[in-house]
Computed example of a mutant assay.
Amino acid sequence: MLHSRAALTALINDVLQKAGASPAQSAPTALALVAAEASGLPSHGLSRVPMYVAHLKAGRVMGNAVPFIANQRASAVLIDAANGFAFPACRLAVDEAITRARATGIAIAAITNSHHSGMSSYHLDAVADAGMVGIACSNSPAAMPAAGGKRP
């Protein structure tokens, strides 16, 4: 029986590594999944583990990916997730955005070639901790209708 978030994070980290993820890919992914679960958003939490494992095994996500800065300007940065999990790329994007916003007053970061980005608010915690305001957006296939709508 798991008795803490740390134990659950360690278990997910281990499962992802056994499925082929590097520690640099698995650790931030495990943290994000547990945070989503703890925040009451299981659709972006533990329920994702079997799917992420299957995606690793099928090569849909690259377990050894290393995100990198693909393009940059003073207030903008494009992170290439190298077809890995989004979480390490999101961490790099947020860190870069905070640094650039401190230097220029405003910043934007975008990520390309990534996997599912999880609970958007999770990525903004570091922005709030830096005393800044952030907005997170993601693309997605039509899956849910707008409020009052009947079709996605």
Rank of each mutant, 00 (worst) to 15 (best):
P23F: 00
T99G: 06
V127K: 11
Q72P: 00
S117M: 08
T29K: 00
A19K: 03
D129P: 00
A107Q: 15
A7C: 06
V66D: 07
A147C: 10
Y52V: 01
G40P: 04
G40Q: 06
L124Y: 12
A24V: 01
P152H: 07
A10D: 15
C90I: 09
G59S: 11
D14G: 03
I135V: 12
G20L: 07
R73F: 04
A10E: 14
E37T: 01
T99E: 14
A27E: 14
A93C: 07
G131M: 08
S75T: 10
A24L: 06
H123W: 13
N83H: 15
H55A: 12
G131S: 07
Q25W: 03
A58Q: 13
S117Y: 10
Q17W: 00
G63L: 06
G118A: 04
T29S: 03
H116E: 02
V66G: 06
G63S: 09
A24S: 14
L8Q: 10
I135D: 10
R151I: 03
V61L: 11
I106L: 14
S121L: 01
A109C: 09
P42A: 07
H123V: 05
G105I: 05
S4M: 04
P28M: 11
A82M: 11
N113S: 14
S39A: 15
V66T: 14
T104P: 04
M62E: 12
N113K: 15
P50H: 06
M132R: 13
R5F: 02
A27L: 13
H44T: 01
A110P: 01
H115V: 00
A65W: 02
A147M: 13
L56A: 10
M144P: 02
G84H: 05
N71I: 00
H55Q: 14
S114Y: 07
A36I: 01
M62F: 04
L124F: 06
I108M: 14
D80E: 08
G148H: 11
P141K: 08
